[in-house]
């Protein structure tokens, strides 16, 4: 008899627990939405996912024309991750641009390892609120980059700074970090089991 009273409570609460477990995972896309909207953490999710839609923004930015009265300094940083033997640097450390002006810069990267590496450049920008106003027409960060052993490449980044960039921002820092996309992927269920069994 007591069971009967409790069934509804238990089922309801268990459902809440299950939903909250799902909510933990839902925080991932939610966080991405937040990042996009408010520029949290200086990242640009769409670029990472390869779904970046540039056409409209470029068209609009170009239609608005160049704002010769304003000069923005754009800095480029190149970082390597510990797990990737890599040489990576921008060929221009910084350039000055007017909003609405299409510019191209190049980055140099070389695979120092003796393996073919599939690498991905992860972009990050400061000030983070400026991400929305930094439109990439073409970027090596849109796709995975395949490097043969010892291969060196010069890679382009073509961009426009939006005229709507808030006043008070005079400098943008665009940073890229190259990561090995295969890193950690060789670990598997077997490795998990091994760590449990062998300690």
């Amino acid at each position: 008899m007591t069971k009967h009273i409790h069934r509804r409570t238990v089922l309801g609460l268990s459902l809440v627990a299950v939903l909250m477990f799902g909510f933990g995972f839902a925080l991932v896309p939610l966080y991405n939405v937040f990042c996009q909207a408010f520029g949290f953490n200086g990242r640009n999710i769409e670029v990472e996912n390869g779904t970046y839609q540039v056409r409209e923004e470029v068209v609009r930015t170009l239609r608005d024309g160049v704002d010769k009265n304003r000069t923005i300094t754009v800095q480029f940083l190149a970082n390597e991750n510990k797990d990737l033997p890599w040489e990576f640097r921008p060929l221009q450390r910084e350039i000055n641009v007017h909003p609405g002006e299409v510019k191209q810069v190049r980055f140099y990267a070389r695979n120092l390892s003796d393996k073919t590496v599939v690498a991905r450049a992860i972009p990050s920008m400061q000030p983070s609120v400026a991400i929305k106003y930094f439109t990439k027409v073409e970027c090596f960060c849109f796709n995975n980059q395949i490097f043969k052993p010892g291969e060196a490449k010069e890679m382009p980044l073509i961009f426009v700074v939006d005229r709507k960039l808030p006043q008070g921002i005079d400098k943008l820092t665009q940073s890229y970090t190259f990561f090995d996309t295969q890193q950690g992927k060789s670990d598997s269920v077997a490795a998990a089991v091994k760590s449990l069994v062998h300690g």
Binding site: K82, P85, E87, L112, D114, Q183, D187
Partner: peptide, 18 residues
Amino acid sequence: IHIVVKGKPGTAMAPFGT
């Protein structure tokens, strides 16, 4: 030389070549 210059991915051994 190889391991010092290129490191050992997945471990704390960094590629000192860079």
